[in-house]
Computed example of a mutant assay.
Amino acid sequence: MNESQQYVLGVDGGGSKTVAWLVERSMIPPFPDSQSPDSQGADPLVPLGIGRAAGSNVRTVGMEAATQHLRQAVEAAFADAGIEPRTVAAACFGLAGAEHADAQIPFQDWAEQEQIAYKTIITNDAEPILHAEVEDGYGIALIAGTGSFSLGENAYDRVRNGGWGPLFGDEGSGYAIALDGLRAATRFADGRGPKTKLLAAFLERLELDEVSDLVGAMYRSSMDRRQIAELGEVVFMMAPEDRVAEGILQRAAVELALLVHKVANQLEDTEHELPVLLTGGVLINHPAFQERLVQTLKQTGWQGSRVYPVPNPVAGAVRIAAKNC
């Protein structure tokens, strides 16, 4: 094995950030027995280098910016490892906005032109989540970050639910939670909704003096979807002491549980207990909300026992790359 063949790359390209991991193939730990009820998921990967860049969702930033950010993340991973950039054995890019072949082909062409790897896999940003904790990649991935959707796969089928975007979807996401909080706050300001501390909390977060200032703050051109989604943190912060905020989070948990149930129903897998893999800032950054979701799943009939948080979906991209060496 020559020196380049020692390494694989995994890249997680989302709407708000891109993360690349450079990993030595021999250092990738095996999976535990995934069917054991006591299984805690895969042992963590230890990357040689980590690179970060801005988002690379082609639907929101365009192809030129997406590939620029991918290149920056890959180069930063090599720099972090103290290794000169080189063609690696295999690379997997899990990219938001690249669900279909027509979106994947331009990235495949770009990666080959850049000579990033001898073998390149381009897939959507949910596929690596399934491979991060389960060897066969069979399970249900639930993503709740800026947006939300679920993806399930078993030996017979792959199905997707949600992911309709911010205009008429993304229920349970940070963006949806933020909007629900802002609606509740302004309804209270108008006298059309129940009293809530969310109004004062949003004004403080946005450094505003008057309720009327919300319009200018929220509709200014520089306020993008990611920044609005970050305001969902206000709802999480106020939930312990505000019934309105608490209700928003409970409705979000119900919506996310529904995404899991519908994927499970579509897969119709009665032979295996499919694990549920959770990722995205809404779930990973809020363990109490993660537990709320698990309880909501159980209360709505979920019989499974294996629920794994996936803080680093890029680890799944590394494992996919290693499988294809």
Rank of each mutant, 00 (worst) to 15 (best):
E114C: 09
A201L: 08
M218Q: 02
L167I: 15
A101V: 11
P275K: 05
Q113D: 12
L267M: 06
E3G: 06
T146A: 02
L203V: 04
N154P: 10
E210G: 03
G216D: 14
I122M: 14
N285K: 07
S56W: 07
Q5H: 11
L231Y: 08
L277V: 07
A65D: 12
G191I: 09
S39H: 04
F93N: 03
M237R: 15
G232T: 07
H100D: 11
A184I: 03
Y308I: 01
T87N: 11
P85A: 07
D180N: 15
N324D: 12
A76I: 02
I248P: 01
L297M: 08
Y156P: 00
Q295S: 08
A54C: 08
G147Y: 02
L22A: 01
P287I: 04
Y7H: 05
V58Q: 11
A201F: 06
W164H: 15
T279W: 00
H69C: 04
A96T: 05
A144T: 08
R205V: 05
E153W: 05
V74K: 02
G304S: 02
V263P: 00
Q6N: 14
G162T: 10
D157L: 12
F289R: 00
I50C: 03
G165R: 06
Q35H: 13
V307D: 01
K119D: 07
E210T: 08
S222A: 14
T146N: 08
R158W: 04
Y156R: 15
I140M: 04
V134D: 03
R205T: 13
L259C: 13
Q104H: 10
R251H: 12
F107S: 05
K197E: 13
Q108R: 12
D170W: 11
Y156G: 10
P32W: 06
E114R: 15
G145N: 04
G13E: 10
A317S: 13
A117F: 11
K119E: 09
I320Y: 00
V58Y: 00
C325F: 07
S34D: 15
F236Y: 09
N124Q: 00
G147F: 07
L48G: 01
P37W: 03
G97S: 02
A252Y: 05
A201H: 08
Q115F: 04
D33T: 03
T279Q: 06
M218Y: 11
G137N: 07
P37A: 02
Y308H: 11
T120W: 11
A288D: 14
I143E: 02
G49K: 01
V244E: 14
Q108W: 09
A76W: 09
M237I: 07
E268P: 00
D269C: 14
D12M: 10
M63T: 02
L214N: 06
Y156T: 05
A132M: 08
S36H: 08
E84I: 08
R25C: 00
R306Q: 10
Q68E: 15
A252C: 10
R306G: 06
V260P: 06
V260Q: 13
L151F: 14
G165W: 07
G193K: 12
A65I: 14
R59A: 04
D102A: 11
F202Q: 09
L151N: 03
S39P: 13
S305H: 15
E24W: 01
A73K: 05
K197V: 10
V307C: 02
E84S: 12
F107E: 01
A257R: 11
K17S: 13
S212P: 00
T67A: 04
Y156L: 14
